Simulated scan of single mutants.
Amino acid sequence: MVTTFQELQMYKNFDELSSDVLDLAKEILPDQLLYLSSFSDTQQMILKLSNNDTNILITEGLVVNLNETICNRVDFDNKQPLIYEDTRKESSLDDLRNALEEANVRSYLGIPISLMNGERFGTLCAVHDQESQFDKKSVELLQRIVRMFSYYLYLERFAYRDSLTELYNRHYLTKFFEDGSKSAGVLFFLDLDGFKKVNDIHGHDTGDLVLKEVASRLQQYVAEHPKAFAVRLGGDEFLIHLSGLSSQEEMGKQAEYVLKSLSTWDADYQLSASIGIVTYPVNGRDDLQTLLKNADQALYRAKTSGKNTYNFF
């Protein structure tokens, strides 16, 4: 599950701490341009630079396709740094040759940043427009800095994630609305049909597995929709936030897709879902509690009309 840039902006003191990380790294490698990056499944974003006065053409906020970056070659599985003291002498970089020369990158050191659960976060990198030598002690010190940064990321992430499913939690949803959403949005308020029977017959451990699988399916869905995210509100209640749906017809199609994804199970579970749908306009004044109350009413009507369906508020 990817840590989004939107989530990072909610973290307390993220900007200050990332600056501190780069300052410490700069003490170790004073001649290098250092930067922090984060990954999505397909892209890399440059979060923070140690300085902008450099010949290297890398800027804060730059987003590039992950497959076209040198950082994508860092060994996250074994948590090993990637070192190229002279990129021009590396035949393995032939496919990136033009990009590296355009950016004036001659040497590269990439330290993997992983979360406590093993998920890739991004990299701490040092680059230069000349050949460089990276001694073992310097690399080890940078790895220790990265390890401390990972602990911070874990603690912040834990505040905004549901511990069972790793979906966003109610705290994240509240913060999202407190910070203000300038665009219109849609909330799908989901409740599982038949979940209590699963717990009663198969036990709570099985129930937890079902909730994790529901979360996985919702995460797959939102990954296909820009700016969408999924939340576990508690128990077997979930929420999907969507943007860019302008008509009830399109909202209905998306709701039907979600319902279908939650109605097929390999095991002998009589499970489905019901959805209450509520919308809010650009710069809408309805607060989150009002939206959830309205969505809950729509959800109730969906359940009373036969379940495995959706209803608009």
Rank of each mutant, 00 (worst) to 15 (best):
R97T: 09
P226D: 05
Y221N: 06
E119K: 14
R88S: 15
M251A: 10
Y300G: 07
F176P: 01
D296Q: 11
S40Q: 00
E237D: 08
Y160E: 03
L192E: 00
Q130E: 14
L29Y: 12
D205W: 14
H171T: 12
D15W: 02
L142C: 04
L22E: 06
R97F: 05
S183W: 09
T165P: 07
F312V: 01
D193E: 05
V278K: 10
T290M: 07
S18K: 04
I201C: 06
I240H: 00
R144F: 02
D31V: 04
Q270N: 14
L259S: 05
K136I: 14
S138L: 12
L211G: 07
Y108M: 00
L141S: 07
L211Y: 09
I70R: 02
E131I: 14
D287F: 05
G235Q: 12
L292C: 06
S263Q: 10
G284E: 03
R301H: 04
E256F: 03
K197S: 13
E131F: 11
Y300P: 09
F176I: 11
L187N: 01
N308L: 04
S92C: 09
G118R: 08
M10P: 02
L57K: 14
A255E: 04
I201D: 12
A228F: 00
S243C: 10
D95M: 04
N98A: 06
T42R: 11
N311G: 03
Y221H: 07
L218W: 06
I46L: 01
F195T: 14
R157N: 13
D53C: 02
H128Q: 07
D193Q: 05
A267F: 05
S107N: 12
N117Q: 04
S107G: 04
R161I: 08
G61Q: 01
I145P: 08
Q6N: 05
E68M: 10
V278A: 03
G244V: 13
L259P: 00
D23W: 12
D200K: 03
N169S: 00
L167C: 09
F134G: 11
T206H: 06
F121W: 12
E68K: 14
F39T: 05
S38Y: 14
